[in-house]
Design a protein around this nucleic acid. Structure first.
Length: 522
RNA sequence: GGCGGGGUAGCUCAGUUGGUUAGAGCAGCGGAAUCAUAAUCCGGAGGUCGGGGGUUCAAAUCCCUCCCCCGCUACCA
């Protein structure tokens, strides 16, 4: 048997100077759905997530709370880890940038870049915004009414900083980056994002300040411990740390690098699509194959913010709706790559319409009929009618469409394609009216029920990446219990339900959402 | 300011080599059915396709112009 192809996928690492919010959960869920999809489709997947624990903001937050930076991240990071688990993510590793392996790795990539002649020591003076982690030119700032100098673009306070700093020769990578974008047209998706990046690079690149001396919560520059690495060197390097860097000869590194996909938020595209490949090129390490930038989620059209008071805790959402329905909602409702909206109404609408009514009820009504009228034994179908063949063909075609959409991470389209078949199946079921056939043509009834169950089987298999728990329960109800029968190789008509199988007693898999009471709704 | 994307049914959106009565899902309305999680199925309804002008036998689709929203980016006093 040929070795499985590998697939390496990552989320951005979260900055744990606070608690996880819905955006973190969304990214983790989407990435997990892709990871699970690829696993089911026969790939050896390495799925990485984690936390980015260094930097001045962490240090300042800790100081404000009267604890050390170390204490702060040790307190907050477990919450992020728990969130990933609560969302039922199947990550293979959870990296923390404070780990020894990462310090070694970051220092190693630094040394490689330095060896390549891309790092030099110079002096930096300018207005620095801690919150933005960025320097601004004088004319990019202004004084507000309180005589406080702010960055004009972001409105964040800036301070005059004059320090010795290492610089990275980013300017030397303009052409190489443009060549990369030209030769790998899907390097950044959605496409618009790549265009933005390319136009930015096209406009010229300045060398990048790569170290700081004004605080110490970070990774020391090799040979000059006064300097702490620029947080983005540290943060981005996590992706290779986790696959064994700097041990580039290790089996793990050779197998899992370069990454196939970095899933990130649209706010950090530049770091991933410009700085990261430049660092890697400098260090002589292969660049990732794709960056996918997802959008932001808005609560009733409003950006989440503490002052508006609409910050949503992902744990609360999971408690309120269940993890699987929540995952389904975000993956189905929001075109992946675009911004999305969510609200209590929208969530229950999806849960009830798509899950409870369309799929759940179809499964329940057909399986109940098999249970009650056929003694729980999957019937042996007769010759297939044209209607049977049509719906089976639609079910068989799902995996092809799903793969096609997955090539560009169009997760919502995968679900769209599946639910189109669910709708077809409901029409089929109503049209064939097996409850009436019970009296007039039991053999034909058996065929209709068999066909329906077969369609549900394929739907359930394809639902696994999105709703791992519920999909498996549905497969259990269909007597599909072997892992081998649950992966995508069992789709497309390659395998069918085995007539004569005794099924367990059916039970609703997707309950209708009913309002508990007028209590606080997310 | 520049570049790019977008403004289509109550909501979310599809729809450009220009061509018969502009589509889908959800919501809403009417009907059917009663196997099922009061679920399902069928049907009507619902739109000046951002405004204006132009090209054309014919424009949501092409051109001009204006308005509004979003993203990236540059900059001025």
């Amino acid at each position: 048997m040929a070795e499985k192809p590998r697939y390496t996928i990552t989320t951005a690492i979260s900055y744990p100077n606070g608690v996880p919010h819905i955006g973190h959960a969304y990214e983790a869920i989407a990435t997990d759905a892709i990871a699970r999809f690829m696993r089911l489709d026969g790939y050896d997947v390495f799925f990485l997530t984690g936390t980015d624990e260094h930097g001045q903001k962490i240090q300042q937050t800790a100081a404000r709370e009267g604890i050390t930076a170390r204490e702060l991240v040790d307190r907050n990071t477990p919450r992020f880890r728990a969130m990933v688990e609560r969302m039922n993510c199947s990550n293979d590793d959870f990296i923390r940038t404070t780990e020894d392996r990462h310090h070694r790795s970051s220092q190693a990539i630094w040394e490689r870049m330095e060896k390549n002649g891309d790092i030099y020591l110079d002096k930096y003076a300018g207005w620095y915004s801690v919150r933005d982690e960025a320097y601004y030119a004088e004319d990019e700032t202004h004084l507000n009414e309180h005589k406080v100098r702010l960055a004009t673009k972001t409105g964040t306070p800036v301070e005059w900083v004059e320090e010795e700093s290492y610089f990275f020769r980013l300017s030397a990578y303009q052409k190489k980056l443009l060549d990369l974008y030209a030769s790998v047209p899907d390097f950044v998706l959605p496409k618009e994002r790549l265009n933005e990046v390319a136009s930015f690079v096209n406009g010229g690149l300045k060398d990048l300040s790569l170290s700081r001396t004004t605080f110490d919560w970070g990774i020391q520059v090799p040979g000059n411990p006064k300097h702490i690495m620029y947080v983005w060197v540290d943060a981005l390097t996590n992706y290779i740390t986790a696959v064994g860097f700097p041990d580039t000869d290790s089996e793990q590194f050779k197998r899992y690098w370069p990454a196939d996909l970095h899933v990130i938020g649209k706010d950090i595209v530049r770091f991933h699509a410009v700085y990261w490949p430049a660092f890697l090129m400098s260090a002589g390490v292969a660049v990732p194959r794709r960056i996918f930038s997802h959008g932001f989620l808005f609560n009733r059209g409003e950006k989440m913010s503490k002052s508006v008071g609409n910050v949503i805790d992902p744990f609360d959402l999971a408690d309120a709706y269940g993890v699987d329905p929540l995952r389904y909602f975000f993956m189905r409702e929001v075109p992946f790559g675009q911004d999305g909206n969510y609200s209590h109404e929208a969530i229950i609408n999806r849960i009830n319409a798509d899950l409870a009514n369309d799929l759940g009820n179809l499964a329940q009504r057909s399986l109940t009929m098999i249970g009650k009228q056929l003694g729980g034994v999957l019937p042996k179908p007769g010759a297939f009618s044209d209607n049977d063949k049509t719906i089976l063909a639609a079910a068989d075609a799902m995996i092809g469409m799903a793969r096609e959409h997955m090539k560009t991470q169009q997760l919502h389209q995968v679900l769209n394609a599946v639910w189109a078949v669910v709708a077809d199946a409901n029409r089929y079921f109503a049209g064939e009216a097996p409850w009436a056939l019970a009296k007039t043509d039991p053999a034909r009834q058996g065929t209709v029920l068999y066909v329906t169950a077969e369609v549900i089987r394929q739907v359930a298999i394809l639902c696994q990446p999105f709703m791992p728990m519920a999909a498996v329960r549905l497969l259990d109800l269909l007597g599909i219990t072997q892992d081998d029968d649950r992966n995508f190789a069992a789709l497309g008509g390659a395998r069918r339900l085995v007539p004569g199988t005794t099924l367990p007693a059916p039970a609703p898999v997707f309950p209708r959402y009913v309002e508990p009471d007028a209590a606080a709704k997310p």
